[in-house]
Structure formats: structure tokens, C-alpha cells
Amino acid sequence: MYKIVKKRVLNPTVTMMDIYAPLVAKKAEAGQFIILRVNNDGERIPLTVAGYDRVAGTVKIIFQIVGGTTMLLNAKEEGDYIQDFVGPLGCATKTDGIKKVCIVGGGVGCAIALPVAQKFHELGCEVHSIIGFRNKDLLILEDEFKACSTKLTVMTDDGSYGRQGVVTAPLKEAIESGENYDEVITIGPLIMMKFVVAATKPYGVPTTVSMNPIMIDGTGMCGGCRLTVGGKTKFACVDGPDFNGFEVDFDEAMARSDAYAEFEQKAREKNCNLFKGAK
């Protein structure tokens, strides 16, 4: 069992938790992920590492309440325990040879982008961050991004905060204005990452995307997380989750990602009713 040491609600649909898992905390790096089960018989879900404290032995996770499992997880409070927590899995984000980087995060993906930005900042790189949200209410981690970025641009779809528009607009402007990024790293919804890649490709700026496909074991056994990258089958759990954005087949990844959409919706409704009953 793994203790929830801290819980913070970041916005109505996004929650942050620090989980006591010293073995995972000792090894975790930005870009890696963990798999957890909330309860016995629970589903295994992958969540990207949003931070870690090697001394305290905790790993930070940030999750959006999208399905039955994240709803159960969100119902847990500080001091409660979750059944299983395993990691760190996948490969850490590569930082070699990068001096200037642009981090592009979207929605809850910003939670995963943050430790990557922090890592580059610690390494002394120039970090530009562009973070986008649907609206002001969904904005998360602005202060944290500010602290590790030389330049931060906040975008909202409806203009209720920061600049109105999509993240690719300021990214294109920056590239055109002569910002020579060694790398663009983007983490967020598949459709956003697809457009980020479409924006950087004409300029040939190397672009890394962090994929978060459906997974079960997360250790290279089930093959559920497979993606087509550069025409070859790759497994996000052992080959990724970071991939060269120019090579990822996003259309396929998007189609595969909603394979269980109906089940998810039912699970969410069922759990919703359960909680209603309890309250």
C-alpha cells in the first residue's frame, strides 16, 4: 500500500498528489511514468511523473478526472492509501546537447511538462514555455512555470486569461522571429501535439512529443501501448514515452486512444452515482 502524503486540488478537474514510494522517488526522472491501481481489482493506469522528492521519498502525480479510476483516486484524501504504485517506467527525457528549449504544454499535459522544464532550467538551459488551457478556470502551475522559464506565454482558447488562441501561434512567432531552439518538447492532447509538430516541421526544429497511450503492464509485456513511429511498431512503455514528433503517426494514435471511450463513460457515470449515493 502506498500513502497519499499530500493532496492539492489544482482546478475542478485536475488534482495533484504526493505519494510515498521511496524506491520510485529515488530513481524517477522527468519524462518517466508510473502505473498505479487505486484498489484491489482496480484498473492499472499510467500517469507521468510530475515531480519527485528523493529525500522525502515521495513522487508527485497530477491527474485529470477523466474516467472511473481517476474518479476513485480523486476520492482519496491525504493519509489514505492506494493499492499499487510501480515505477519509474519508460525512458527519461533526453537533455544531451540542448542549450535552448521551448516547452509547449497543453491542459493537464502541463503537469508533465513542468518537471521537464525544471530539469532543463537546473541544467542551465534557456527555457521558453508556452502553456495553453481552455479557459482561466483550468489554468494550473503558472507560478511554477514562471520560476523555471526565461520566458512564459500563457494561452487560453477563450481569452479569459493570458493571450487568446492556440499554443502554436506564439511558437511559430518565436521561431520566425529567430529564436533558435535546439529542441521543442510538447506534452498535451494528441491533437495539440500533432499541430505543434506541423508548426515546427517546416522550420526543421527537432520536436519531441510525449505519448500517453493505453497501457496495462507498462513493462514491455502486453503491447497495448504500441504506436507507429517512422513506419515501425514502437512500444511507448519501453521505447518511449518520448518520440521524435516528425515520425509519430498521430492519426492512428488518436483513433487507438478512444478504443474504450464508451466503457470509460459508463464507468464514470457509475462511479459518479456511487459518490452521489455516499454523500
Binding site: L23, V24, D84, F85, V86, G87, P88, T219
Partner: peptide
Amino acid sequence: TNVVIGKT
């Protein structure tokens, strides 16, 4: 359980 040798 929950220990991946090669990772954890």
C-alpha cells in the same frame, strides 16, 4: 510486488 528490475 511492484518492483521492476531494470527500472526500480
